[in-house]
Design a protein around this nucleic acid. Structure first.
Lengths: 116, 116
DNA sequence: CGGCATCCTTATGGATACTG
DNA sequence: CAGTATCCATAAGGATGCCG
């Protein structure tokens, strides 16, 4: 979020928008969840299998946060046993091209040190 | 960093590169520092004035981290009083266009909720 | 001036048992 | 099956005093 009690700067408008973008992929697992759900709609147990190192609390919490942000959608099917599916929303999908462009930054900083 | 003990997925290569990109803007102040230094080279005290809410420890630590990552450069001028200037490196500058594209994601998620 | 060292508070992530 | 609740561990950020 915005730091408090600071002098307004021209960079603030940019900062705020980029921060909002970062919010959807902050944390250790959100980016993974988005990339996985770009491939398929998945149910809760399938996400757990693909992310074995994440705890129940964190997985459920991150999914809930992404739903609130409007990145993914949660569909409940009142079957027995219960089925819950998670799907990227159109807004979530629209963010993917730019997320994938960020790989370019990653590649730039994989190269050798060049402090010019 | 990469989560440990998980099954390898096709998304891993993407995840790793995007994570590396995120590393340079993770934390509460790095994005601010980069945007400020894109406008001018600044000395330590000037950065402090423009970011009044940041503590000495955090500011100095983040600057050091960005130098280590190769995003910014630290130039020391052995004057009295001492002068230290921070400047974006060419690698740092090359990341800016993509960072600015992320504003598009921010705008998408500023719009009304649309869970399709 | 430009930090670093120390101590403290808060945020994030995790393990595990239990529930609708 | 798909979570919640509780408690715990670690990391990130902050306040402040001191030093080259």
């Amino acid at each position: 979020m915005m730091p408090k009690d600071r002098i307004a700067q021209p960079a603030d408008a940019e900062y705020t928008l980029i921060r909002r973008a970062l919010e959807i992929i902050s944390g250790k697992w959100r980016l993974y969840l988005i990339l996985l759900l770009d491939e398929h709609t998945l149910r809760y147990s399938e996400l757990r299998q693909r992310l074995p190192a994440v705890s129940e609390k964190v997985l459920a919490g991150e999914l809930k946060a992404l739903v609130t942000l409007g990145v993914i959608r949660r569909d409940v099917f009142a079957e027995v046993p219960l089925r819950v599916e998670y799907t990227l929303t159109s807004k979530g999908r629209s963010a993917l091209p730019i997320l994938r462009q960020m790989k370019q930054i990653g590649q730039i900083f994989n190269e050798h040190f060049d402090a010019t």
